[in-house]
Nucleic acid binder design. Structure first.
Length: 87
DNA sequence: GAGCTGACATGTT
DNA sequence: CAACATGCCAGCT
């Protein structure tokens, strides 16, 4: 990957999150290769409206849903169906 | 080219 | 226990 930007890696990691599991922004940042880019991960999700990226499976380290393009309410619903457990 | 903003995290007050 | 302040990275103006 010549143009491998951090955002490309983040999107790939989030897209690889198995259904029924959730990852924190920190975990995604680490998985992408930047343990200090938790904030950037959130910014990337916001700027990237890709339906292939289940950003609803990405939560904060506290377990709080955080934000979502289609509304945090929708995110909580999806987490309840896929994660089975909601904070 | 530089500066501001923001879907976060951690520590201290 | 809760609220405030600081540090980090990437994207947009």
């Amino acid at each position: 990957m010549t143009h491998s930007s951090f955002r490309e890696h983040v999107l790939a990691v989030v897209r690889a999150i198995p259904r029924g599991s959730t990852m924190t922004y920190k975990a995604v940042a680490v998985a992408a290769g930047n343990p200090h880019a938790a904030r950037a991960v959130g910014a990337i999700m916001k700027t990237n409206y890709d339906p292939n990226i289940p950003c609803h499976r990405v939560v904060r380290s506290d377990g709080t849903p955080g934000g979502y393009n289609r509304g945090s309410k929708r995110k909580r619903e999806l987490l309840r169906e896929e994660g089975g457990v909601v904070a």
